[in-house]
Amino acid sequence: MPRETHQWTLLIAGWFIALVATLGALFIGEVMGQMPCTLCWYQRIAMFPLVVILGVGAFRGDMDTWRYALPLSSVGLVIAAYHFLQYAGLLPAPIVPCSASGPSCSGAGMLIMGIPIPYLSTAAFAGITLLLLPLARKQS
């Protein structure tokens, strides 16, 4: 496979993950009527622009798209990992983002295919970040 085709495939794969994650978040919020918790909002802020950035980059064949997308996916990954660790009970939190007084993603209704939303978000950001890293290495 030619180098440019491989790089383009990485961009498309990252775009697809971002698209599925964004559509999933919109489905949960708009169709299921579930409000996101504070950490979920921050993750959405990082994920939603990735659909546009990676989509336009792949459409234009711009292999420098990683310069814009990688920082965004990395920040999202840090927030998602923090949320993952809180949800799993491995990290005690002084601030409880998923509480009874506000929106919570810790309820039984907040599972997609039996998987908690914080786990799916972490997997999505990790996938996008891992797909963009080879582009950064090849062009640095």
Rank of each mutant, 00 (worst) to 15 (best):
P2H: 10
W8C: 06
L10V: 03
L11T: 02
W15Q: 03
L19T: 05
A21W: 01
L23S: 05
G24N: 08
A25H: 03
L26Y: 02
E30R: 13
M32L: 15
G33K: 02
Q34N: 12
P36Q: 03
P36C: 01
C37M: 05
T38P: 06
T38R: 14
Q43F: 01
R44A: 11
V52H: 02
V52G: 01
I53E: 00
D62A: 08
T65W: 00
Y68S: 14
Y68M: 13
L70Q: 09
P71F: 08
S73Y: 05
V75N: 07
I79H: 06
A80S: 08
A80G: 04
A80P: 03
Y82G: 11
G89L: 11
G89A: 11
P92Y: 01
P94A: 13
P97Q: 10
C98N: 14
S99F: 08
A100S: 15
A100L: 11
G107A: 12
G107P: 08
M110S: 14
I112A: 15
I115R: 07
I115A: 06
P116V: 04
Y119V: 13
A123P: 03
A123D: 04
A123Y: 04
G127F: 09
T129F: 10
L131V: 00
L132C: 06
L135C: 04
R137C: 10
S140R: 15
S140H: 13
